[in-house]
Nucleic acid binder design. Structure first.
Lengths: 140, 140
DNA sequence: GTCATTTAGTTTGACATCAAACTATATGCT
DNA sequence: AGCATATAGTTTGATGTCAAACTAAATGAC
């Protein structure tokens, strides 16, 4: 029960959350998608198209990582890549119809996750938690 | 500022913590060591020798991952591997003299990390944070 | 005592990830 | 206009990670 344990707890919780998400997706028949792929798809629900650089910034992953992640999503048929006509360096990523079908699945997994995550946590605790974590985040 | 953000914050904080640790180690002249290697060495400060299975359990990583991590530590000269005479399936991992020299470095990095992490966080907040995170952890 | 099962660890194959080097294109300066 | 610089993405190489298959050794049931 030392203060140091908080850091370890944070790692472990993150791990549990990731495993939960992947497992729930598999239960709903969605295979081969990790949390980073999910982050990309989630971003595309809100913005119909994003460049590789946009995605990199959004999901906090290196651009070369994004190349690999998006290429996998293309392979799985969830998104498409298209070059900009004017600035041919730019690539736009957008959801395919199959990708759009994931939205309700994501919604339900997200709901289940939050229900479990916040089980027996009061509103005040939720608020405190958010405030404290934000302070810590800004310390770095 | 939604409740959902907490999960994303946790991921980001964990990422920051890991980067901080690795960067501080490099500053102190220790290269090639990631946080998982650090976890192994840290465990060996407290227990003079551990089996591969012990380590796997301690650091929450697959046993095959532990094989790779420990082999790297052997290559870097920080630990040694030795088979048990009686049960030759078992391998003991222990710190080398070079590995033991890391203890003060770890101490100082750990202190710096905690100082930064808890900057401007009151004792009450620390306690609340630990309690809430423990509850969440046990939800999974 | 022999055979099945369990246990400890390694190997293999796949993939996420990053950093550095690279390609191609656009922009800016003169 | 022409060259230097900046920007967008990809490729390459290294590493951490897991799961599944594998090897070797110990345990247990009969």
């Amino acid at each position: 029960m030392e203060t140091r344990d908080v850091i370890s707890l944070i790692s472990k919780i993150r791990e549990k959350v990731n495993r939960f998400i992947v497992a729930e997706m598999v239960k709903q028949g969605i295979n081969g998608i990790g949390t980073s792929h999910g982050d990309i798809i989630y971003a595309l629900f809100k913005q119909p198209r994003l460049t590789m650089a946009d995605i990199s910034k959004r999901i906090h992953k290196d651009k070369s990582t994004v190349t690999a992640l998006v290429d996998k999503l293309v392979r799985l048929g969830y998104v498409t890549k298209e070059r900009d006509r004017e600035d041919t360096r730019v690539v736009y990523v957008a959801l395919s119809p199959k990708g759009r079908e994931l939205e309700p699945v994501f919604e339900s997994v997200s709901t289940e996750l939050l229900d479990l995550f916040y089980l027996n946590i009061s509103d005040k605790e939720k608020e405190d938690l958010l405030n404290i974590l934000e302070k810590i985040y800004h310390n770095f």
